[in-house]
Amino acid sequence: MFKLEAKNVEVFYGENRALHPIQMGIERNTVTALIGPSGCGKSTFLRLFNRMNDLIDNCRISGEVLLDGQNIYDNSIDPVDLRKKVGMVFQKPNPFPKSIFENVAFGLRINGIRDKKYIAEKVEKALHLSALWDEVKDTLNKSAIELSGGQQQRLCIARALAVEPSVLLMDEPTSALDPISTAKIEQLIDQLKSEFTIVIVTHNMQQAGRVSNRTAFFHMGELVEYDNTKNIFTNPAKERTQRYVTGRFG
């Protein structure tokens, strides 16, 4: 059974079609990269998995999206509960204007957890996981806004990990960062995949090649090709993919 599965999913924004029917399965504990030119629907597709598209007024979705075999668009599913299982990291680091500690503790607090020792433990664990602990362990009460961009993004990853989701969605998580911070986050993704299923949107071909097991190429709302990353970059089946990964359009 797939960890995540899209079954004939279509998405419309008002009258405009953003995604043609898409069929795609994602294995447990893998990293899947979504690539494609701007506006092709990568973010739209990614946001299906934690129902963030629900927040957009005129967005209409048909088909099924399965998490562990269950349709998350079923009426019995509360998107609030779903988002606790499917964490998300955004393109621009978006820490809350609170302390480093409170940022990571946010998810625990909204779950009604009051136990201080438990929260402190989980915060530390999440910061270790996101490889930020050594840099911030003495300044946990400092405002998160004062961290560097790369540190802020790793803080956002820690914040998402603190509630122990099983899936982590990342929408261009390094596009606003310098090469060193990017390398750190790529390293992190590699370590995290033993515990999480990760789906990452990226514009950076090398990054997709480095971090992902499988790659999906989108073009104009269509899933053109979905295969092992190695195949996509060395021996794609479709000409459009070939042209995109070799940098001839997009």
Binding site: N50, M52, L55, V80, D81, L82, R83, K84, G87, M88, F90, K92, N94, P95, F96, F106, G107, I110, N111, C156, R159, A160, V163
Partner: peptide
């Protein structure tokens, strides 16, 4: 209030009220 902050909170599984 930046949209990104609201999305961060909602994306964590916070309710609208929270």
């Amino acid at each position: 209030v930046p949209r990104t902050l609201k999305e961060a909170s909602l994306g964590m599984g916070a309710t609208h009220w929270q």
